[in-house]
């Protein structure tokens, strides 16, 4: 139901910092109809060319400036992921992904008020880097 908001088209790219490729990044809208504190992001999975990215190599940011590991995000209650704004999901991986086409899957689960089952969505895209 919210799959159409997962993994924004055209958002996949290698991250360049100080002339070095330090990771690979995608963006997504929320699988819900309102903004939430970042701590309500329940889980995120990134799969690149069939291989699961290790959970502790993923960081997320609601503004592209301050980044949190998924474990850290569990206590981040003062940063909001606003409805209609992207969440940045970055794989900290020196060299990023090699140039060329890749199959990338993003899975997202968030907690919602009063419903014990997290909402989620997923999307696979073929992306050219």
């Amino acid at each position: 139901m919210f799959d159409g908001y997962v993994f924004t088209d055209g958002s996949a790219r290698n991250v360049v910092e100080n002339g070095e490729v330090t990771g690979f990044q995608v963006e997504t809208l929320i699988t819900y109809y309102r903004g939430i504190p970042l701590s309500m992001v329940h889980d995120i999975e990134l799969v690149v060319d069939g291989a699961d990215v290790p959970r502790d190599e993923l960081v997320i940011s609601p503004d592209g400036e301050d980044w949190f590991t998924l474990a850290e995000a569990e206590t981040v209650t003062t940063y909001r992921w606003e409805y209609g704004d992207p969440l940045y999901v970055r794989w900290l991986h020196a060299g990023g992904v090699p140039a060329g086409e890749h199959e990338v899957t993003l899975r997202l689960k968030i907690r919602v008020a009063y419903i014990p089952v997290p909402f989620g969505g997923e999307r696979t895209r073929l992306v050219a880097v």
């Binding site: 504190p37 701590s39 329940h42 569990e74 008020a113």
Partner: peptide, 9 residues
Amino acid sequence: FINSTIYKN
């Protein structure tokens, strides 16, 4: 909404 599920644990 009351974010009663704001913490995972």
